[in-house]
């Protein structure tokens, strides 16, 4: 009897263990989840806004032109800047295109180096510079955005330059109207975000012309190299 009872007890215990184990095999669920997240950082870019326009030149030409939406890498030969060029100004109009999802700042820095050795050589002050009218148009562009132009605009405007009464030299006199004001990185343009939520493949943006001008004068003969760097940031 005690043996039978003992056997029964052990059998019961074993059965209990088996059932408990079977019940715990591969638990099921009627629900599952997918949790997702994404990040959007501030983004700005500057590219060419299109082909360069060179006028008033004698000789020279556009060596490397701009292509809308492509990286800005323009090279221009302004040609003859001595008095044999009888045009009023040699001007180069370089379209820029800015895109951003946040407020932006466009800064400009420039270096001007001439082979001449006297005060009559071409210097940064002799290169007129300004940003023209800002255009926010096209699908996907924040057309209600505002922009602040820190330059004097078209350097060839009468209000932006005149002949120095003492030296007789033509000078670009308005604030930030020539490249001497940009010897270090200086804000030229700033504004609110440019693009609404559209893909990068959308080709529109903020277009603004960078305008350069030199008045042919009796400069010291030689050659001059002008380098201008445009940098856009999203502070």
């Amino acid at each position: 009897m005690s043996r039978t009872f003992s056997t029964l007890v052990r059998a019961c215990f074993a059965a209990a263990i088996l059932v408990a184990a079977a019940a715990s095999a591969e638990a099921q669920s009627t629900t599952g989840t997918v949790t997702m997240s994404a990040t959007v950082s501030k983004f700005v870019e500057i590219n060419s806004g299109g082909a360069v326009t060179l006028s008033g030149n004698s000789g020279g030409g556009v060596t490397t032109d701009g292509t809308a939406g492509q990286p800005l890498a323009v090279s221009i030969n302004l040609g003859e800047l001595g008095p044999s060029n009888t045009n009023s100004f040699v001007t180069a109009n370089v379209p820029l295109r800015i895109r951003s999802n946040a407020g932006y700042v466009l800064s400009v820095s420039a270096t001007v180096s001439s082979s001449g050795t006297t005060a009559n050589k071409i210097s940064a002050a002799d290169v007129g510079f300004g940003l023209g009218a800002v255009s926010r148009t096209g699908t996907g562009v924040n057309t209600s955005g505002t922009d602040t132009n820190a330059t004097a605009g078209d350097p060839t405007l009468a209000a932006n330059g005149s002949v120095n009464g003492t030296t007789g030299r033509y000078e670009f006199t308005a604030t930030r109207s020539n490249l001497s004001a940009f010897s270090t990185s200086t804000t030229a343009l700033s504004g609110s975000y440019v693009m609404n939520a559209v893909p990068r493949s959308n080709g529109n943006g903020l277009n603004v012309p960078a305008m350069f001008a030199i008045k042919p004068q009796f400069f010291e003969n030689g050659s001059t190299t002008i380098n201008v760097t445009f940098t856009v940031t999203a502070p």
């Binding site: 599952g32 989840t33 997918v34 949790t35 997702m36 997240s37 994404a38 950082s41 999802n101 996907g140």
Partner: peptide, 16 residues
């Protein structure tokens, strides 16, 4: 990827 306003976003989808 688009010119979204800067920031983050999250969501959870539950299947049943």
């Amino acid at each position: 990827p688009q010119f979204f306003a800067p920031g983050t976003a999250s969501a959870t989808l539950t299947f049943q």
